[in-house]
């Protein structure tokens, strides 16, 4: 049986161009959708005016809705989708585990604990924001995973097991703090954040996440071929000339940093980092030079539309985006695996 793949060889630039165009169109359309009744043309001219092209007749409030609410939120959705999908791809390849996702290193549960300590217990004396607490928690849990996996022997399965152990520990801590100390209102707020939500998106979050995403993508571009070498395991990678320990440490730290920054801004949006890499792989094949940009674009488009759905489907109430990714992601995951079944 022969395998036909899009993106093999010369079709790759075309595929990436198409995906980039799809992303641009997705963002352009998504910002015209929302509870405030603003015409499509008005939305675009408001954005154009802000970018210095022409002028907009929109009132200041409506202009603010477009420029300070819808646009940063949609762009942040794209950035988070791209980042989570790329982190998931790297984790799956590096740890040789199809179930790995960006949260396998315990980063998200550490972030939850940090956020809860700040919000519920007032840790940091009011100086620390929820995001800062979450980032500190993520850093602590990732450090625990690194130390633990090193002590346990440093093999790939030890990294995964350490991640699972640390994740359980911090989840238990979070639950303990919430159950013993939080009132109903705070609990609801924390829970909403834990499930992942883009409702607090502003340009500051966009800039931070985008900068870290860009830096991580640059690092990954340099390691794309090294990641290919891990297909048959770490020994095989070593005999192909890869400095296995260094590659693993650099990539684990880069993905943990990006995941921590994303989680501190928007909470733990699940399933994007697990499902999108598998879906993209069926289109581009396992070669990371092709797979990484394709996954990034697919994740960006996916999360833009999922967030649009999350904020409109139960209007005026908002559904946490993490709930929608799981509701859409699970059937999509099953479909992808079902279609791949024939090739095994």
């Amino acid at each position: 049986m022969s395998v036909t793949r899009l993106g093999a060889g010369s079709r790759l630039p075309l595929l990436l161009l198409g995906a980039t165009a799809a992303l641009a169109v997705s963002i352009a359309v998504a910002i015209t959708i929302g509870p405030a009744d603003i015409g499509v043309g008005d939305v675009w001219s408001a954005v154009a005016a802000r970018l210095g092209i022409g002028h907009s007749d929109l009132s200041a409030i409506r202009d603010g809705i477009v420029w300070n609410l819808r646009l940063p939120r949609t762009v942040l959705a794209a950035v988070c989708g791209a980042g989570l999908a790329v982190c998931g791809t790297i984790m799956q390849s590096l740890l040789r585990n199809p179930l790995a996702d960006p949260f396998v290193l315990g980063v998200s549960s550490g972030a939850s604990t940090g956020a809860v300590l700040v919000v519920v217990l007032g840790a940091g004396g009011g100086v620390l924001s929820l995001s800062a607490g979450a980032f500190a928690g993520a850093a602590v849990s990732f450090a625990c995973v690194l130390v633990l996996s090193h002590v346990l022997g440093g093999t790939t399965d030890r990294v995964v097991l350490s991640g699972v152990a640390v994740m359980q520990l911090f989840s238990a801590l979070t639950s303990f703090v919430v159950l013993t100390s939080a009132d109903a209102e705070t609990t609801r707020g924390v829970l909403f954040w834990l499930l992942g939500s883009l409702s607090n998106a502003g340009w500051a979050e966009v800039v931070t996440c985008l900068a870290v995403l860009a830096a991580t993508l640059l690092v990954c571009a340099g390691y794309a071929r090294s990641l290919d070498a891990f297909a048959f395991g770490e020994d095989a990678a070593a005999t192909l000339g890869i400095a296995v320990a260094r590659t693993r440490l650099v990539l684990l730290c880069a993905t943990a940093l990006l995941t921590a920054v994303l989680v501190s801004s928007v909470g733990a949006i699940g399933f994007v980092g697990l499902v999108l890499p598998h879906a993209a792989r069926t289109v581009t094949g396992p070669n990371h030079t092709r797979l990484l940009p394709a996954t990034a674009l697919a994740g960006a488009v996916f999360l833009v539309w999922v967030d649009t759905l999350a904020r409109t489907v139960l209007d005026p109430q908002e559904v946490p985006v993490g709930v929608v990714t799981a509701l859409i992601g699970v059937p999509a995951f099953v479909l992808v695996l079902y279609r791949a079944r024939g090739a095994r």
Binding site: S226, A231, D235, R281
Partner: peptide, 30 residues
Amino acid sequence: AVVEQQTDTQLPLTVLDAVRLGRIPHRGAL
């Protein structure tokens, strides 16, 4: 070059993909 005793992968690799891995030591990152 080394051929290990038993190797396996979860990735949807083709024969060509697997053989191409052998060129990794001969090429720079980009």
